[in-house]
Each structure stands twice: as structure tokens, then as C-alpha cells.
């Protein structure tokens, strides 16, 4: 679980942070905090699906479910076998 958290946090930092000095944690709001816009969520969803060999239905891939690393881990674990 912790490893998944760190993998996703690292991806979010590399993929979305414009300012390298910006610090984010597991519970930093990503969508509502303006770090990941709803359009760019697509690449995050694709990353999770490829990395964990899962398929996240569109109705589950909501801005709320993607709003922090902690929430994303909960979402991913629903689909990991």
C-alpha cells in the first residue's frame, strides 16, 4: 500500500508540478487545489491503468476520486485483483 502511494505521488510530482520547489503530500488536494486539471486527469488514469493492469470505468474516474493520492490509492485498490 505504502509503495503504491509513493509510486503515484512520484508520478504526480513528475507529471504535473510546474514548480520544482512545490511540496505536495499524500493528502494534498490535486483537482480542487488546481494541481491537476480535470482534462489532464486522463493521463493520470492511463498511468494507473497501465501500471496496475486495471481498467477504471469512466463513472468511477471522478474528480473527487482523483483529488488526492490517498483517494487514488483507495480507488485503484477497488480494481486490483
Amino acid at each position: 500500500m505504502d509503495e503504491m502511494k509513493d509510486v503515484i505521488l512520484k508520478y504526480v510530482k513528475n507529471e504535473y508540478l510546474e514548480d520544482e520547489d512545490q511540496e505536495i503530500g499524500y493528502d494534498t488536494p490535486l483537482i480542487s487545489g488546481g494541481i491537476v486539471d480535470s482534462f489532464s486527469m486522463v493521463s493520470l488514469k492511463r498511468f494507473l491503468e497501465n501500471k496496475y493492469k486495471i481498467s477504471i470505468p469512466d463513472d468511477k474516474a471522478t474528480p473527487e476520486a482523483f483529488d488526492s493520492v490517498t483517494r487514488i490509492v483507495v480507488l485503484v485498490n477497488q480494481f486490483v485483483k
Binding site: 504535473y16 510546474e18 482534462f39 489532464s40 486522463v42 493521463s43 492511463r46
Partner: peptide
């Protein structure tokens, strides 16, 4: 088509 984005 698939969409993706890059940092500004």
C-alpha cells in the same frame, strides 16, 4: 483520438 498533455 487519445489525448495527452505536456507541462507548459
Amino acid at each position: 483520438a487519445e489525448n495527452d498533455s505536456f507541462k507548459h
